[in-house]
C-alpha cells in the first residue's frame, strides 16, 4: 500500500492542513514508511472475524430527558478567538 504525493495533497485538504510543497514531500515519505509497516496486517486472514469498535460490551447507556445547567454565556464565549454580540465570529464562508 503506497500513497502518492497527489493523494497526500487530497488528504491534507480533507484534513484542512495548509501543507507546503516541502511538507507534502516529507509527509508522503514518512507516511509511506508507516503504510509499508501497516501492510503487516494483511498477513492475517480476518474474513470471518467480527470488528470490535468498542472494548467493553456496553449497550443502552441512556440518560433521562432532564435539564442540566448550561454554561454561563460569558464562559461559553470565553475562549472564542473572535466574538461579537454573543456569537462566535468567522470570516466569510465562500
Amino acid at each position: 500500500m503506497k500513497i502518492t504525493e497527489q493523494a497526500v495533497e487530497q488528504l491534507a485538504l480533507l484534513s484542512r492542513l495548509d501543507l507546503t510543497a516541502e511538507d507534502q514531500t516529507a509527509h508522503t515519505k514518512s507516511i509511506n514508511v508507516i503504510l509499508d509497516y501497516l501492510d503487516l496486517l494483511n498477513k492475517l486472514d480476518t474474513s470471518n472475524v467480527e470488528p470490535a469498535a468498542h472494548v467493553l460490551p456496553l449497550k443502552n447507556v441512556f440518560r433521562e430527558d432532564r435539564l442540566q445547567p448550561s454554561l454561563a454565556k460569558e464562559l461559553a464565549l470565553a475562549n472564542a478567538p473572535e466574538e461579537e454580540a454573543g456569537a462566535f465570529k468567522v470570516p466569510r464562508i465562500f
Partner: peptide, 26 residues
C-alpha cells in the same frame, strides 16, 4: 473560512500530529 481552517491547523499542530491526522484520514 476554508483558509482560516487550513492556516490555523497547519500552524497549530506539530508535524507528528499532522502526520497522524492524515494517516487516520487515509
Amino acid at each position: 473560512v476554508l483558509g482560516m481552517f487550513k492556516k490555523t491547523r497547519i500552524r497549530g499542530f506539530g508535524a507528528e500530529v499532522q502526520r497522524r491526522i492524515m494517516l487516520g484520514t487515509h
